[in-house]
């Protein structure tokens, strides 16, 4: 499990349930690595501001993370973390590698 203060997605079933029951969702799939930690950190801060969005992380190396790793929107991604934004269960944007607070905020403003 990732050592963050975000809620964790731990299985494919939980992933499906989250997407089914929430309009706006962001999931950051990574490790506790240098490019990932700043994204979780920014998400923890943004979570307080964007109460209309559900914020989650997911460990990249668990088998069930294939739900993110194999998304068509993540094809060609070669930098951790993979951060995916969903509206009504559909992917609206996905980013690869480190993003800062402002970049994530800009996507939240635009998409949700």
């Amino acid at each position: 499990m990732l050592q963050t203060n975000l809620k964790h997605v731990e299985s494919e079933a939980q992933y499906s349930e989250i997407l089914q029951n929430n309009e706006n969702v962001i999931i950051c799939c990574g490790r506790m690595g240098p490019m990932c930690v700043p994204v979780y950190d920014a998400m923890e801060d943004l979570e307080k501001e964007y109460t209309n969005v559900k914020f989650y992380d997911m460990e990249f190396d668990i088998p069930d993370a294939h739900v993110i790793r194999n998304l068509p929107e993540c094809r060609g991604f070669m930098g951790l973390p993979f951060t995916v934004y969903y509206k009504n269960g559909k992917v609206v944007t996905a980013t690869t590698s480190i993003q800062n607070y402002e970049q994530i905020k800009e996507i939240l403003e635009r998409e949700f």
Binding site: M78, G79, T96, S97
Partner: peptide, 9 residues
């Protein structure tokens, strides 16, 4: 191509 082949880590 950052994250799509280019990396710093």
């Amino acid at each position: 191509f950052k994250g799509r082949g280019i990396s710093y880590c």
